[in-house]
Design a binder for these strands. Structure first.
Lengths: 190, 190
DNA sequence: ATAGGAGTGCTAGTAATGCTAGAATCGCCT
DNA sequence: AGGCGATTCTAGCATTACTAGCACTCCTAT
């Protein structure tokens, strides 16, 4: 019994090690650098071990993404609770979201761009995801007026996401980024 | 001389054939189905022929994307010129953009998501791209007020792009799509 | 007409990918 | 100590984008 639990503990630890290694690798060099071979080498196990923990590469990306959601939720929360008035809160949370996307592009892609086998728009979605969305929603709430809060939050989210991904993909110049952000947030603050 | 021109003509025709085949394939089965082998088989040439026309797969995607921009520009133009008042024009152009993204998802991805070796946010960008953006800009112009027209257009574009990509990636439910679109366009119509 | 030659396209192969079957090894219990 | 089960590794598969170098074709010049 005790041996069993020890093994489970070691196994869980190794799983965390794999996720951590994947995250380090991807944040340093992007997703195309995260191959099963390189990842296996990093954790000092052979490739098949990865498949005893995860169904495939997509599942590893999903696990990394979930960690990302937790980080994002924390950063959004910090921005929201630090703000004094509602308008400032939306602006700060929006800016925090943008900063996250800019500073952790590969992580952001796993969370919001890549097709990854995670439930998203449903109650089964990871708690961290709901937490992150919740932060955005609470920031929007005071300014929603008679609009549906959930839909309005999703719309703002879409705006932020679009601006960041277009910029990262080279479709928008970095120049003007702050002003676009201000325009978007301004439209959601009256 | 005449032989030379005939060869050039044949060559250009074959290039168009490759692009058309790539587009058919991708619209039917998505980008992961567009492999150099399958594409070569479709055009009834060997793989190396593809590389005598294009630097690599990315360049083929770029060529397909350029065709997509032309299509998008045409559809946006039709929506804009059919509308009677400015508010309706923005709403219709926005809806046309969303419809394009929804009906040609793979094409849309090549244009706006995949990293592809094309100049985007610069004068060297393909004319079709400028045309498409121009349609959006002309729709926004009457409602820009004292905001910078270019930046405001980019911001609306970001909003549309974000909503569509989040929905396509499973991050947003299809349910509520129309209302989110209305919320976004509403915020840009006053 | 025919030999030569330029250029065009194909065959065959490389390195790398995600993933897996089956062998080998390790560690626990009797 | 011996043997059994679970665990991990070696080796390989099929597929990817891309390329080197041969072979053929078709035009040109004698």
């Amino acid at each position: 019994m005790s041996i069993q639990t020890r093994r489970e503990r070691e196994r869980a630890e190794r799983e965390r090690l794999i996720i951590a290694a994947a995250r380090e690798l991807v944040e340093a060099e992007g997703w195309e650098a995260v191959t099963t071979r390189r990842l296996a080498e990093r954790v000092e196990y052979s490739q098949p071990v990865l498949y005893s923990h995860f169904k495939g590469k997509d599942a590893i990306m999903a696990a990394v993404a979930v960690e990302g959601f937790a980080d994002l939720a924390a950063e959004l929360r910090a921005a929201r609770t630090a703000a004094t008035d509602p308008r400032q809160a939306v602006a700060d949370v929006g800016a925090a979201y943008a900063a996250f996307a800019e500073q952790r592009p590969a992580l952001y892609d796993a969370m919001f761009t890549h097709t990854v086998d995670l439930p998203f728009a449903s109650p089964e979605a990871p708690a961290a995801l709901h937490a992150a969305f919740g932060e955005l929603r609470e920031a929007v709430r005071p300014l929603a007026g008679e609009d549906d809060l959930g839909l309005l939050t999703e719309t703002l989210w879409g705006g932020l996401h679009g601006l960041m991904t277009l910029m990262r993909g080279g479709r928008l110049r970095h120049e003007g980024h702050e002003r676009r952000l201000a325009l978007l947030l301004g439209r959601f603050s009256r």
